[in-house]
Amino acid sequence: MARYRIIAVLGLAILVSACAAQVPTAVEQGADVPGFWWGLWHGFVFPFAWIGSLFNPEIAVYSVPNNGGWYDFGFFLGITVLGGGSAFSSKKRKK
């Protein structure tokens, strides 16, 4: 029974993710368009930018337009690796 539930949830997740698409105007190429390194930086400062965006509408947590996949990858790494990610919860606690 649990196997069918897992298969159903995974199938639903794949079905929903198939509907996702990136807006073509959000992806650009050029020297002044944020790429991997800016994505890494934006991911690292995400908690501070998010708090700032609550009080100032001119602060954004994600840069649009960007160069697409590389910016997204840098943003993901910035949040997970530089931002701590799950490393804090995975450390063994001393008794």
Rank of each mutant, 00 (worst) to 15 (best):
P24V: 03
D32T: 09
A18V: 07
W37G: 05
G30M: 04
P47K: 12
A18P: 04
D32E: 11
A60D: 13
R3M: 10
A20E: 07
P24W: 01
S63P: 01
W70L: 01
A87H: 14
G85V: 01
P65V: 08
W37Q: 13
L77H: 09
F73G: 05
G83S: 06
F46S: 06
Y62H: 11
G30K: 04
F36Q: 00
Y4E: 10
L40Y: 08
F76Q: 05
S17H: 10
A2Q: 09
R93A: 13
S89Q: 11
K95A: 12
V16P: 04
K95M: 06
A18T: 11
T80P: 03
A18K: 10
E58R: 11
F46I: 08
V16T: 10
A87C: 12
E58A: 13
G68M: 01
V27T: 13
M1P: 10
I14Q: 07
D32I: 05
W41S: 03
A8H: 11
V23K: 14
S86A: 12
F46Y: 15
F88I: 12
G78L: 07
D32K: 06
G83E: 02
M1F: 10
F44V: 03
G39L: 00
A60K: 05
H42L: 05
V23W: 14
W38T: 08
A87S: 15
E58F: 09
L12W: 05
Y71N: 00
F36N: 02
L40G: 02
V45I: 15
G11A: 04
P57G: 07
L10G: 07
S63D: 08
L10I: 10
P47L: 11
P57R: 06
H42D: 15
I14K: 08
A8G: 12
V9E: 09
D72S: 14
A31Y: 11
T25H: 05
V61R: 02
A21F: 13
A20S: 10
K92Y: 11
